[in-house]
C-alpha cells in the first residue's frame, strides 16, 4: 500500500467513522475555535492579559464561582500590588493569603440557580474543547438582535415557516424539527438561559459577561470577545500555573534527546556496518 492510498483510506475511514447519532442528538453548535497565545510549543501567558482576566474573574465570575486552587496572593506575580491584591481579597470577604473562594455560599447559589456553580480552577482542562469551550460558554448567549427575534416570535401563538428557518439558523437548531424550535422559543420567552454551545442548550448560568462590564486599567477595549478571551486565558493559567515551566523544561529535554539519539545512532551505524 502506498503512502498516498494509506492517507486516503484513513481519511475515508475517519469520515465514515464519525457517529451520526452524536451529531444528531447533541443539539449544541460546534465550538468556535480561538487563537490562544499560551498554546502550542512556544505559547506563553501574557502578564497583561492575566491581569485583565484576573480582574474580570474577581469582579464578575467570583460573584458565584470560586477558584479554590489559587490564592489571591499568587496574583502578585502578574504585577498587582500588595494593596490591589488585598482589595480584591476583601471584595470577597477574604484575606490576601486565602484561597479564591466566592463570597456566595453554596447553599445560596443552589437556591438561586438550582445547582452549585462549579469551581473554575480546572475549568479549561475539565471539558472537551478546553479553552474554546470556556470561551464559547461565555459568549454563546443570544445577542440583542437574536433576543428581539425570539421575543417577537409566536405573537399569534404559532411560528411561521420563515420564523422557524431564521431562528433555527441563528440558534444552530435543526430547521426540520419545528416542534423543537417552538419549544426552545417558549422556554427562552419564559426566561430560561439559552446558550448556543452548551450541550442541551439550556444553561443554569445566566449570561455572565456583558460588554463594558468592567473597566481595564490598561485601557484595553472591553467588548464581549475581549472580556471572554482574557477571562479564559486567566482560567487556563489557574488550571495549570506550571505550564510555562513545563514547556521551557520540555524544550531543553527534547534538544538533549535529539543530541543523545543522534550520537547513539552514529555508534549503532558504525558498530553494525562492520558486521556485513
Amino acid at each position: 500500500m502506498t503512502f498516498n492510498s494509506l492517507v486516503k483510506a484513513t481519511a475515508l475511514v475517519l469520515a465514515l467513522a464519525t457517529p451520526q447519532a452524536l451529531l444528531a442528538g447533541g443539539a449544541a453548535a460546534p465550538l468556535p475555535t480561538q487563537d490562544w497565545e499560551h498554546k502550542g510549543m512556544f505559547g506563553e501567558f501574557d502578564n497583561n492579559q492575566m491581569k485583565r482576566g484576573a480582574q474580570v474573574t474577581v469582579e464578575v465570575c467570583m460573584g458565584c464561582h470560586s477558584v479554590k486552587y489559587i490564592k489571591f496572593d499568587f496574583l502578585r506575580q502578574f504585577g498587582f500590588t500588595e494593596q490591589e491584591v488585598k482589595d480584591m481579597a476583601e471584595s470577597q470577604g477574604q484575606t490576601k493569603k486565602s484561597r479564591m473562594i466566592s463570597s456566595m455560599s453554596e447553599e445560596d447559589a443552589k437556591d438561586s440557580f438550582g445547582v452549585i456553580p462549579p469551581d473554575l480552577s480546572l475549568m479549561t482542562k475539565a471539558r472537551k474543547g478546553y479553552e474554546d469551550y470556556t470561551y464559547a460558554m461565555l459568549t454563546g448567549y443570544l445577542n440583542e438582535d437574536e433576543s428581539e427575534l425570539i421575543n417577537n416570535a409566536m405573537e399569534d401563538d404559532a411560528l411561521s415557516d420563515s420564523e422557524i428557518q431564521s431562528i433555527a439558523a441563528k440558534l444552530h437548531l435543526n430547521p426540520d424539527d419545528p416542534e423543537k424550535v417552538k419549544e426552545v422559543v417558549t422556554r427562552i420567552q419564559n426566561g430560561e438561559n439559552f446558550n448556543k454551545y452548551y450541550p442541551g442548550n439550556f444553561f443554569a448560568m445566566p449570561q455572565p459577561l456583558m460588554a463594558d462590564q468592567v473597566e481595564y486599567a490598561d485601557g484595553t477595549k472591553t467588548d464581549l470577545h475581549q472580556l471572554a478571551k482574557d477571562t479564559t486565558a486567566f482560567l487556563a493559567w489557574a488550571a495549570e500555573p506550571t505550564l510555562m515551566e513545563r514547556k521551557s523544561t520540555g524544550k531543553g529535554v527534547l534538544l538533549y534527546l535529539i543530541l543523545l539519539t543522534a550520537l547513539l545512532y552514529a555508534i549503532k551505524r558504525r558498530m553494525w556496518s562492520k558486521l556485513h
Binding site: M41, Y130, T261, I267, M271
Partner: peptide, 28 residues
C-alpha cells in the same frame, strides 16, 4: 547499542507528549 538507540527515539516521542501534550491521552 541498538536497544539504546531505540530508547532515544522512544523517549523523544514520550517526552513530546509529557511536555507538550500531556493531556492527550487523558479524559477531561
Amino acid at each position: 547499542v541498538k536497544d539504546l538507540y531505540g530508547v532515544g527515539v522512544f523517549l523523544l516521542i514520550y517526552c513530546f507528549f509529557v511536555f507538550f501534550a500531556p493531556n492527550a491521552f487523558l479524559e477531561p
